[in-house]
């Protein structure tokens, strides 16, 4: 099973996503902002990152770039919200492998994850 890093400043979201994924047998690690996500990525080397865009300390886009410059094969799925179309576009350019729009269904997250680390 995959090791997945879930990054969101909202604990509620982290808990919910973690639960969705751990029920599929994935190992979950969490980070609450971009800065911690980059640190955690470097130390824990997850197979996949699910990351929010709007976060304190360091936003998801910047964290995505840092993670990708550290590991060009990093698989990052952005968690986004309505109104962030242009940021999503930037994220895809920066190498994000997918994006999931909040609010999302469990199936949507699971299929995004399965596509990348199935």
């Amino acid at each position: 099973m995959a090791k997945i890093l879930v990054v969101d400043d909202a604990e509620f979201l982290r808990v919910r996503i973690s639960k969705m994924l751990s029920s599929e047998g994935h190992e979950i690690i969490e980070a609450e902002n971009g800065l911690k996500a980059v640190e955690t990525y470097k130390s824990a080397r997850p197979d996949l990152v699910l990351m929010d865009i709007t976060m304190p300390e360091m936003d998801g886009l910047t964290a995505l770039r840092e993670i990708r410059s550290f590991d060009s094969s990093a698989k990052v799925v952005m968690l986004t919200a309505l109104g962030q179309e242009s940021v999503v576009l930037e994220a895809i350019k920066a190498g994000a492998r997918d994006f999931v729009v909040k609010p999302f269904e469990k199936e949507r997250v699971l299929s995004a994850v399965a596509k990348l680390v199935g």
Binding site: M1, S18, S22, S23, E24, G25, H26, E27, I28, I29, E30, E107, L110, S111, V113, A114, K115, G118
Partner: peptide, 19 residues
């Protein structure tokens, strides 16, 4: 691709570790 994770469901859940 979802089938893969469905299979995974039956595997060891003990490894799941939420920090």
């Amino acid at each position: 691709p979802a089938m893969v994770s469905a299979e995974a469901d039956t595997t060891d859940k003990g490894r799941t570790k939420v920090i």
